[in-house]
Amino acid sequence: MRRFDYYQPKSLEEASALMADLGSEASIIAGGTDLLVEIKEELRKPRHVVDIKKIPGLRDYSYDAETGLRFGALVTARDLEIWAPVIEHYPNLRTAVAALGSIQVRNRATVVGNVCRASPSADTIPPLIADGASLSVYNRGDERQIPIEDLFTGPGRTVLVPGDIVTGISVPPSRPQSGRAYIKHGRRKAMELATVGVAVSLERDGDTCTEIRIALGAVAPTPIRARNAEALLRGRAIDPAAFTAIADAAMAESTPISNVRASAAYRRDMVGVLTRRAIGQAMGGV
């Protein structure tokens, strides 16, 4: 591996000031499952690596029926995978974390790191967008919230600036009569990046769909919302006869590429199939 200097700040203030000083040649390391692979493969060449694991308070996670789910920047995919409130209330996020790499990877990989890496195929991003989750960001004394939906500007690129340390993620609570699903599509069951990922979160009042969010992974330069598809269902009676039009709208909104994992045409077709299936699963949860 290339050489770099290694820092272990003991507080957010210290980490943020250090990152701002070191500028673009510095990288934060949390679990390192992306960063170390990228350094080894020479996709990234940071001169400074700033480890945030000695900063207190970033490992907490909590769930409250009123305020929802909140977890810190050092909470791993595996922590959430085996935690009862996530299994019970966020089956979409649960599916995503349980399908991310291997148990060994999940014991290191943080969910915040998965989001910050901004890969179009990252598994945790579609369910977090569909649930309306937001990031808490600290920068030299200031704190702000960024809806995860607004974070991405391109593959591997975000609106974060030097000095920004993401401290955690908040996910709104599940309302009564709400349902959530995430479907990861790949060529095999495990150790596979998503060919297509579809997340649906919806709420209903009797037969009417009062709110719906559909998020698609791996079919555009960033994870995206399928807003035209959502609009065909929001505020309307849930009618399976309309599902074909909804699936078509989601397909039209995706702009996939062809790569070793799948062709663009196949990805677009699967967006249709999986959007329909994910709506069905999410309704089953209502």
């Binding site: 694991k53 291997s102 014991n107 290191r108």
Partner: peptide, 12 residues
């Protein structure tokens, strides 16, 4: 916890 030793820095 089981982890991949190739994805941990010794200093960590």
């Amino acid at each position: 916890k089981p982890v991949n030793a190739c994805l941990v820095l010794a200093v960590e």
